[in-house]
Amino acid sequence: MDVVTIGEWLTLWVMSFALGMDAFSIGLGMGMLRLRMKQIIKIGVVIGLFHMGMPLGGLMLGKQISSHFGGIAAIIGGCLLLLLGFQMIRSSFKPENEPFVTPVGFGLLLFALSASLDSFSVGLSLGIYGAKIVLTIFMFGFMSMLLTWCGLMMGRKVQKWLGSYSEALGGLILLAFGIKLLFPL
């Protein structure tokens, strides 16, 4: 491997790690729900697939419209995370133990969409580079899946420590991440 190839690989890994960190943060918040291991695996796979599909969709639209959709994707993602966060906090104060939004069915799709909208704007900004796109998309999905699993597992441990307050804390994490997307520094 030459220096240029190593630099390209390193750049791709750093980009995929950065994109996966939002999935980790969201997974940390959602992991505070009582989830079975089968659900955790499924959530990670679905988020990984969304982190592959969203940048691929962005690549298909091209760089020329990146300025329009990049900001819209961040706004939509931020609003979805705020909605999920508010619902988790609200449901943590309900007498019954069933959360309002769970990462099952449509809730899982909403969760995966909110976690991967920023990768859509990254796909828009990448443009079409040829064969390396397949590797890039694979790395985005793989890293997001791994980091989602890490976040969900850490959230699961925190949930055991915090008990009934864990869902409210998870909601606060989602709220904070939604605000971060809406108001970047």
Rank of each mutant, 00 (worst) to 15 (best):
L33G: 09
V46E: 14
S114L: 03
K63R: 15
G85R: 00
G77R: 06
L56G: 07
L84A: 15
G77Y: 11
D118M: 06
A112R: 06
A168W: 00
H51W: 00
L162A: 12
C150D: 14
S164G: 05
A23Y: 00
T5K: 02
K132I: 03
M145Q: 12
M21L: 13
L33T: 05
T136Q: 06
L109H: 05
M1I: 00
M60S: 05
M153S: 09
W13D: 03
C79A: 13
A23L: 01
L181D: 09
L59C: 04
S25M: 08
V3T: 14
M30A: 13
G71S: 09
L61W: 06
L135F: 09
M30E: 10
I40V: 12
F50Y: 14
K42G: 03
G77I: 01
F69P: 08
G44E: 15
Q87M: 14
Y129F: 02
T5C: 01
I41N: 00
G53S: 14
L113H: 10
F24A: 10
Q39D: 15
M52L: 12
K94Q: 13
K63W: 03
L59R: 15
K94G: 00
P184T: 14
S164C: 02
H51D: 10
L181R: 15
D2V: 05
L84P: 01
I89E: 15
G27P: 01
G171A: 10
F111V: 06
K63S: 11
V45Y: 07
G141V: 00
I65C: 04
V45F: 14
G70T: 04
L181M: 12
Q64G: 07
G170S: 06
G107H: 09
V4Y: 14
G178P: 09
G27H: 05
S121Y: 02
W149L: 13
S125N: 15
F100K: 09
G78V: 03
I179S: 04
F111I: 02
L181I: 01
G7N: 15
F100I: 04
L28A: 03
D22M: 01
P99K: 03
L81Y: 12
K38I: 00
V45S: 08
